[in-house]
Design a binder for these strands. Structure first.
Lengths: 142, 142
DNA sequence: ACCGACTTCCCCACTTATCCCCACTTCCAC
DNA sequence: GTGGAAGTGGGGATAAGTGGGGAAGTCGGT
């Protein structure tokens, strides 16, 4: 269960510390890849397997499906935490998410997202304005 | 079953004592997050799980769903009581609810709410005046 | 094939924040 | 009045975040 929001810095070598609360859940490996909305997604190995299986099962006759599969799989990177609980964020993914030094790490229950801070702030501000109406719309779904 | 209203103080480290009557129900963990109307909500772990599972199950292809998930999960924090029956209220959540030193803790049957005292007072006063009419409007719902 | 340069990984060190434990005071119950 | 539990506060130990250095492996060039 990933919950909470954290601000960590990448060092000169592109390493990013995973919050201590999250480390146990990704201790046996993780996969970092492109997420939706220009963020990065980090999945525990087991969760990644089921996600990848479902994505692979989609109809390949749909061009959008193929595009999405390529986006996800091509840039995916499987890693393990180093001794200090960090991962290396590949330059390709850093560029995709616009991350340079600071990063906002967000728990999303089943997976982790990594954001460029300003981008996350923009999202957060949008919710301040529209949050109530979104909650209203989703209320009957939950 | 959470009932009653309590006034406790946060100490310099942002710790807040949970009323003794409530501790057994959250002994195996709790989640504190943003509530509606600028209060904080505290859920026992089990209750939170069922809510989180339903929210996670929604389709991530809907951008409103993603937005809502991000706000709910990012601002939530799972904790356990310390030896004195306290929790730490993270600074972001304190700011959201406007809580500084004093806090009003309210039992809401299934969960707990934490309020900035003045805000709670205003709400309470409004209910004293309009209670009957509110009840009237809800009459057919109950 | 050998040498050199670069990258990558691992380990160590420092600063800061967090957690845990202990102690005091107050309030309620007996 | 006395005992116990609950609320409050502070201090010390421990872990977390961050940065840098060194060894090993890889790649390219000579």
């Amino acid at each position: 269960m990933f919950l909470g929001r954290f601000s960590h810095n990448l060092d000169a070598k592109g390493r990013l510390a995973i919050p201590a609360k999250f480390r146990a859940a990704v201790a046996d490996g993780l996969v970092v890849t492109r997420g939706i909305d220009r963020c990065l997604s980090v999945y525990p190995l087991a969760a990644w397997q089921s996600f990848a299986d479902r994505l692979s099962a989609l109809s390949k006759t749909d061009s959008d499906v193929r595009l999405f599969q390529r986006m996800v799989f091509a840039e995916a990177m499987d890693e393990v935490l180093d001794g200090q609980g960090r991962i290396v964020v590949p330059p390709e993914l850093r560029r995709y998410a616009g991350i340079e030094r600071e990063a906002t790490i967000v728990g999303m229950n089943t997976h982790i997202e990594i954001w460029e801070p300003a981008r996350w702030e923009a999202l957060s501000a949008a919710v301040e304005d529209e949050g109530a109406s979104i909650a209203q719309r989703l209320a009957d779904l939950i």
